[in-house]
Simulated scan of single mutants.
Amino acid sequence: MNKLSDMAMFATIVKLKSMAGAGRELGMSAASVTTRLRALEDRYGVKLLNRTTRHISLTDIGEIYYRSCLEILDSVNETEHLIKQGVRATQGPIKIVAPKDISKLIILPILSEFIAEYPEVTPHLYFDDHVHNIADRGVDIVIRYGELNDSNVISRRLGKSERTLCASPEYLKEHGIPQTPNDLLEHDALVMSSDHEALKTWYFRKGSKLESVVVKAKYLSDDGEIIKELALRGQGIAMKSLLDIKEDIQHGRLVTVLDDYVKNFNSATTENSTDLKVYYLDKRHQPKRIRLFLDFLYHKFAELEKAEKA
């Protein structure tokens, strides 16, 4: 067996977390998979997987080998595709993960323009605010607010944003306008959740002073669009990214409060900690269609920022 097929086998084992499952997918017996894995580990003199009868996990060196396998196999697949199909490098999928609100407002129109220029590209757009590892999810691009803790990616700022507190005029007329963060304790909060954890602690900075408030959640959701809809319906005060609610503010459907504070779901209440950013894997042989889309994305966001300043 050659090294490339060993890489494919190892990546399949990790993906399925099962020797037997990898064997079924590769047309091999579980015993053959186990034998080849042992031979692979013996070849390099390292242990790549921690294995019990019920559980498989990567060792530290196994994690490094696995990421290298994914990168090499992806490059080989891309090369084979171009050779076999004999087509332009702009044909194929682009898998993008982005928040639902910003996708509907901005990303979808940009994608539509891009596909009009490159009709052979097939976009896959997934709504998810909780991606932590691009390689494991098998996506090309992640668009999100704030930082992504993944050392294997490159990041670039798309647009300036900030978190703001907002509510409908009707809600504020009935319940009053909070003047300090502590006033929020008397209000209904519309709370985001992330990885099944409610983000009920809201942080506020004014000058050098940082304070936090644990708000009373009337509703919780892991979908930012739901939180905005509840705010529009007068159900409480929400913490949202300004890019998501800009049009609602302009048309008077939502009103911002406590504007003289910098706000966030964590203590990193700095000016750029909530900016909209794009993340992608640092691939030496990145497909042309992804490079083209990233350049298109940067250009469109630059146009939007220029239009706002005009």
Rank of each mutant, 00 (worst) to 15 (best):
M1Y: 09
M1S: 10
M7S: 11
A8W: 03
M9F: 13
A11V: 02
T12H: 01
V14Y: 06
S18P: 06
A20M: 08
A22F: 10
G23T: 02
R24L: 14
M28K: 14
A31S: 13
S32I: 07
S32L: 11
V33F: 09
T35E: 01
T35R: 15
R36Y: 03
R38W: 01
E41P: 10
V46P: 02
R51S: 07
T53G: 03
L58M: 06
T59K: 08
T59I: 08
G62F: 10
Y65R: 14
Y66H: 12
S68C: 07
C69R: 10
C69H: 08
L70R: 14
E71S: 13
I72T: 15
I72R: 12
D74A: 03
S75C: 07
E80H: 03
E80W: 03
H81Q: 05
L82E: 09
K84W: 02
Q85V: 01
G86A: 13
R88E: 13
R88G: 15
R88L: 10
T90F: 11
Q91C: 13
Q91W: 06
A98Y: 00
P99G: 11
P99M: 11
K100C: 03
S103H: 04
S103G: 07
I110T: 08
L111C: 10
L111Q: 05
Y118M: 07
E120V: 14
V131T: 13
N133Y: 09
N133C: 15
I134V: 15
A135K: 01
R137P: 01
G138W: 01
V139L: 11
D140N: 14
I141A: 04
I141T: 02
V142Q: 01
Y145C: 11
L148G: 02
D150C: 13
I154H: 02
L158R: 12
L158G: 07
G159C: 14
G159H: 10
S161L: 13
E162L: 10
L165G: 07
E174L: 13
H175R: 13
G176L: 08
P181D: 02
N182A: 04
N182P: 00
E186F: 09
H187C: 08
L190H: 08
V191N: 00
V191S: 03
M192L: 15
H196D: 14
H196T: 05
L199D: 06
K200W: 01
Y203M: 09
F204P: 06
S208P: 02
L210G: 04
S212C: 06
S212W: 03
V213A: 09
V214E: 12
V214R: 13
K216Y: 12
K218M: 05
L220A: 06
L220P: 00
S221I: 02
D223Q: 08
G224L: 07
E225G: 09
I226D: 12
K228G: 08
A231S: 15
L232C: 09
L232A: 09
G234T: 05
G234A: 10
L242H: 15
L243H: 04
K246H: 08
E247D: 14
H251T: 15
R253L: 07
D260E: 14
Y261F: 14
K263R: 11
N264E: 08
N266R: 05
V278T: 02
Y280V: 11
Y280A: 13
K283I: 04
K283Y: 08
Q286E: 12
P287L: 04
K288L: 15
K288A: 14
I290Q: 06
L292Q: 03
L292E: 04
D295S: 15
H299L: 09
E303N: 01
E305C: 03
E308I: 08
K309H: 10
